[in-house]
Design a protein around this nucleic acid. Sequence first.
DNA 1: CTGGATCCTCAACGATACTG
DNA 2: CAGTATCGTTGAGGATCCAG
Lengths: 232, 232
Amino acid sequence: MRDRSYGQFCGLAHAAELLGQRWTILVLRDLLLAPRRYSELQEGLPGIPSNGLARRLKELEADGLIVRELSEAPDRSVRYRVSERGQELIPALDALARWGAADMREPRPGEVVTAASLASALRSGIRSSTAAADRTGRTVYQVRVGDAVAHAVLEDGVVQVGVGPREDATLSLEGGPAFRDVLAGDLELADAVDRGEITAHGDHGLFEAFTATFQVPYRNANPPVEAAPSGR
Amino acid sequence: MRDRSYGQFCGLAHAAELLGQRWTILVLRDLLLAPRRYSELQEGLPGIPSNGLARRLKELEADGLIVRELSEAPDRSVRYRVSERGQELIPALDALARWGAADMREPRPGEVVTAASLASALRSGIRSSTAAADRTGRTVYQVRVGDAVAHAVLEDGVVQVGVGPREDATLSLEGGPAFRDVLAGDLELADAVDRGEITAHGDHGLFEAFTATFQVPYRNANPPVEAAPSGR
DNA sequence: CTGGATCCTCAACGATACTG
DNA sequence: CAGTATCGTTGAGGATCCAG
């Protein structure tokens, strides 16, 4: 667009100016889960044009949402990581992810699951209150869908979500789209395992704890705030 | 784009597909505050091309986020309103609005404030807990910035935000960009009134209650959720 | 091999004019 | 009032090429 500004002094308009370009939100999603190199981003965002990624990264850096850093002498590789300002996006992106997940059922033809999409789904579904009430020990979940692996570590009521595997997983789950139904609360994890749609290794006694900690309800996931849709 | 899909089975990607087009979020912002006619939307979104608005409305209707309804026989006018699914966006858009507001200071040249941007700012700043603890009476705030007027009604701890004036305002405020500083907590409402930057009519005893109910903190407005930015 | 830059094409956006 | 029609501009998509 000639001028990406909306000409309004409005927080939402400003957010839309910064995040509204194609691929921007997914680049940030991946970077919010781990610092990434250019080629790692390309790998995690199948279909992104090479120059498109370069453009987005430059814009995001200019807007102060990410930082481009050169590694120390040994490899001299380039890494992108989110700035503090970028970190503050997490609650908003999680709210968007919950909303977007509400009308997903089956993957459409050709749709893939990436490590970042999986981890993002987990993080957006965290129920802090439930996690805080959880037992005081340490629990490590690992979730795998195809090649995509993500994990979550619960310790002292705090949940840390990340991409990639964890060798020390307390409960390791592997499955397909049935995960969506489990996260949505439409399917009991134990039932999914019984039906063979999800394979579990480790402490099967954590099935209920997993479901209690991660939930992306199918509808009305978000705390309601009242507006006046019929006002004037 | 050739195909607006991102090819990922991911709630955030799906949300980005639905909301990522230009003007889409602002159209929804306005419709989430009140049903609107085509010409009212044009008026509230200065600069939107006529055909662009028409395109967005058709897409939003096809995606099930808004409903196009013809009024009864008398006038035969067309009104757009958000669907239930669209309503569920409120928490996510409010979170985005808070994030976006965090690095706004002065309006950039040419930027305007509309009734919807004002009301949206108020709604995104609602502190439900504070509002719930408020007195049991009924309070009506009216806020005006230039031609833009919005209001909020507190009753039984529930806040309803809307566009347009309220004749029954308990406290009526009028001012300029100083409102941003008050909402951000950088400026006491009483001080702003003392300096003449904001004019108040009605019950001046509500100054503290207003600030306690509406806050869009400058930084770290959102409840922190932990991610693993350095994980792997 | 990583980290891009360049080029070309086409669909989305934008401005304006016009119509049922 | 509620849009269409037309047309020019620009950014996105995709392939290829280049430098360290």
